[in-house]
């Protein structure tokens, strides 16, 4: 070989023909850090959109247990990661309560899987999300958001409390830290790949 391969000229039009969107859902209980995680990962300021469910949640969410949070996120937060020249990954923060399952079905269709955020101080809040993804056979990773005072709980205890299947991945994140959130996404995609056979 006496010459290096010629550098390819930029071909935006051709590249666009192969554009491929992907999505990962971010779920979990109310106030668990879904918006924060999406914000940490997104390359654009996180946006929000509506699925027309505002009236359903008025006055229903219990905002007393989450200091500093006065209203629930009825709009759906989402973020964007440009993965390479063809793939764009979207993250959708989905309301975790089971009364929103009507919108999860549409969101879950074709999804890579889900990151289910858990606050160990209110561990039961994620049960609905785990049930949902488990029942539909969608890959999910349980990500314990490291809130103050929760570091001492070991993984086995968490697995027991959540009745997690043995092969379901469990990880720890700081939702404010993009690196740890990216690692949770990597864990999810590895798991999805392992299950795709």
């Amino acid at each position: 070989m006496d010459s290096a391969p010629a550098e390819r000229a930029p071909a935006p039009a051709a590249a666009r023909d192969g554009l491929l969107p992907l999505k990962i859902l971010v779920s979990g209980g109310f106030g668990v850090g879904k918006t924060t995680l999406v914000r940490s990962l997104s390359e654009v300021a996180p946006l929000s959109t509506e699925e027309g469910m505002t009236s359903l949640s008025d006055g229903v969410d219990d905002t007393r247990v989450v200091p500093g949070k006065s209203t629930t996120t009825v709009a759906m937060d989402f973020g964007r990661i440009t993965v390479d020249d063809r793939i764009v990954l979207y993250l959708f923060g989905t309301p975790g309560q089971s009364r929103f399952w009507f919108m999860w079905d549409e969101l879950a269709r074709g999804a890579v899987g889900a990151v289910i955020l858990v606050d160990l101080r209110r561990i039961g809040d994620c049960f609905a999300a785990i049930d949902y993804f488990e029942n539909r056979g969608l890959p999910f990773v349980v990500a314990v958001n490291d809130f103050p005072g929760t570091a001492g709980v070991d993984d086995d205890t968490v697995r027991d409390a959540l009745a997690l299947p043995a092969d379901a991945p469990l990880t720890r994140v700081d939702a404010r830290d993009g690196g740890s959130c990216t690692a949770a996404l990597v864990t999810l995609v590895e798991y999805a790949l392992a299950r795709s056979g």
């Binding site: 390479d84 793939i87 074709g110 999804a111 890579v112 990597v186 999805a192």
Partner: peptide, 14 residues
């Protein structure tokens, strides 16, 4: 589900 080769590209990118 997303195709396998797509998941592999996603993993590389992440």
């Amino acid at each position: 589900r997303p195709r396998r080769e797509l998941l592999e590209r996603l993993l590389d990118g992440l």
